[in-house]
Amino acid sequence: MSRVANNPVLIPEGVEVSVSENDIKVKGVKGSLSLPIHKLVQITQKERTLNFLPKKLGKHAEALSGTFRSLVNNMVRGVNQGFEERLQLVGVGYRAQIQGKKLLLNLGYSHPIEFIVPIGLTVETPSPTDVIVKGADKRQVGQAAANIRNFRVPEPYKGKGIRYTSEIIVRKEAKKK
């Protein structure tokens, strides 16, 4: 039984939520998001709270109601505060810079890598070795950060590559003769 769905989602001031039969739309300061509602989940809105209930009894419906509660909570939080992921480039000559809607990455390859910033996201480079991905959609921010990280995954011997700032790379010892 999902206990996550039992907690209601509180709607802060400045956020508008509209629930229809097929989808839920959330508007706020940082943008607007929408999500189609699954046929096994019932969403009820009372004043400034949203409650999630399964329409049928069963594990699948209860699990989906908890999942939808988490997704809608992330939507409300995203349009109100936003999400961000911070990446760090570690390596000699590794650097990043913004040119219009593109992120140019020099990662030790023979050519610079161009990453086109998806619509709805902003990418900042406060220093040549730091990249910040910001947006209202948590999934989209995380996926863009993961795509940037996959251009040069940190290797375990010297720790070179693109890593999350909170990530800890376990270093291996080199072979001994």
Score class of each variant (00 low, 15 high):
residue 43 I to P: 01
residue 45 Q to S: 06
residue 48 R to S: 15
residue 43 I to G: 00
residue 52 F to V: 02
residue 53 L to R: 06
residue 30 K to Q: 06
residue 32 S to R: 09
residue 45 Q to C: 10
residue 53 L to F: 12
residue 34 S to F: 13
residue 53 L to A: 09
residue 53 L to S: 09
residue 37 I to Y: 03
residue 55 K to W: 11
residue 47 E to D: 13
residue 40 L to K: 05
residue 39 K to Y: 08
residue 34 S to W: 15
residue 50 L to M: 11
residue 28 G to C: 04
residue 44 T to C: 09
residue 51 N to K: 11
residue 55 K to D: 08
residue 42 Q to M: 07
residue 56 K to Q: 14
residue 57 L to T: 09
residue 41 V to K: 02
residue 46 K to H: 06
residue 43 I to Q: 00
residue 45 Q to D: 11
residue 53 L to Q: 07
residue 29 V to F: 13
residue 40 L to A: 12
residue 44 T to H: 14
residue 49 T to R: 10
residue 29 V to K: 12
residue 37 I to N: 05
residue 32 S to T: 10
residue 48 R to C: 09
residue 31 G to F: 01
residue 55 K to A: 07
residue 47 E to T: 12
residue 49 T to Q: 11
residue 55 K to L: 10
residue 46 K to D: 11
residue 31 G to A: 04
residue 49 T to N: 08
residue 43 I to E: 00
residue 40 L to W: 02
residue 56 K to N: 14
residue 33 L to S: 00
residue 49 T to F: 11
residue 45 Q to M: 13
residue 37 I to A: 04
residue 55 K to C: 05
residue 36 P to A: 08
residue 57 L to E: 14
residue 46 K to G: 08
residue 30 K to R: 13
residue 34 S to K: 15
residue 42 Q to L: 11
residue 46 K to P: 04
residue 37 I to F: 03
residue 38 H to P: 02
residue 31 G to M: 01
residue 44 T to N: 14
residue 50 L to R: 00
residue 39 K to I: 07
residue 39 K to D: 08
residue 45 Q to N: 09
residue 53 L to V: 07
residue 49 T to K: 09
residue 41 V to C: 05
residue 55 K to V: 09
residue 55 K to G: 03
residue 54 P to R: 03
residue 31 G to E: 01
residue 34 S to N: 15
residue 31 G to I: 00
residue 57 L to V: 08
residue 28 G to Y: 00
residue 57 L to D: 12
residue 27 K to H: 11
residue 28 G to T: 01
residue 40 L to G: 00
residue 33 L to M: 10
residue 39 K to R: 15
residue 37 I to T: 04
residue 29 V to A: 09
residue 30 K to G: 04
residue 48 R to K: 13
residue 29 V to C: 11
residue 55 K to S: 07
residue 46 K to R: 15
residue 49 T to I: 15
residue 48 R to F: 07
residue 29 V to G: 04
